[in-house]
Design a protein around this nucleic acid. Structure first.
Length: 112
DNA sequence: TTGTTGACTCTGA
DNA sequence: CTCAGAGCCAACA
């Protein structure tokens, strides 16, 4: 199975109103955080992957190379109830995806 | 094949 | 708390 597929499958599991980081996804699929970012960049428009729920380790939105996308991402998260503080960061204690902290993945994760 | 480029993270100051 | 610098490694030219 392609590594991108596993990444997308995990991202699809992030509930609305929650966020997680590139690094946490990277640990789950056992790859480099940069590859997670690369996988996000490779998502075609309209694909059913909630990539906007993925932020960097500091809790802030990562700017793309072309600088586009951050506004859309923040607005999407705001619609789901995710609150950014005055420094443009989300509080992982409040909105962090708790399942991402599990030391192992539930059996039904890769069934689909 | 070599060199550059990131939607990143960790560590030390 | 913030800020560089180093490390990272697949994808791409």
């Amino acid at each position: 199975m392609a590594i991108y597929e596993e990444i997308y499958k995990i991202v699809r599991r992030i509930p609305a109103g929650n966020v997680t980081s590139y690094g946490r996804i990277a640990r789950m699929v056992k790859c480099n955080p940069r590859q997670v970012g690369y996988a996000m960049a490779a998502i075609p428009d309209g694909m059913d992957v909630p990539w906007h729920r993925v932020v960097n380790s500091k809790g802030e939105i990562s700017l793309r190379k072309d600088g586009y996308g951050d506004h859309f991402q923040r607005q999407k998260l705001a619609e789901e109830g995710v609150i950014f503080n005055e420094k443009g960061r989300v509080n992982f204690d409040l909105f962090g995806w708790i399942e991402a902290e599990l030391p192992f993945l539930p059996d039904d994760w890769f069934d689909d």
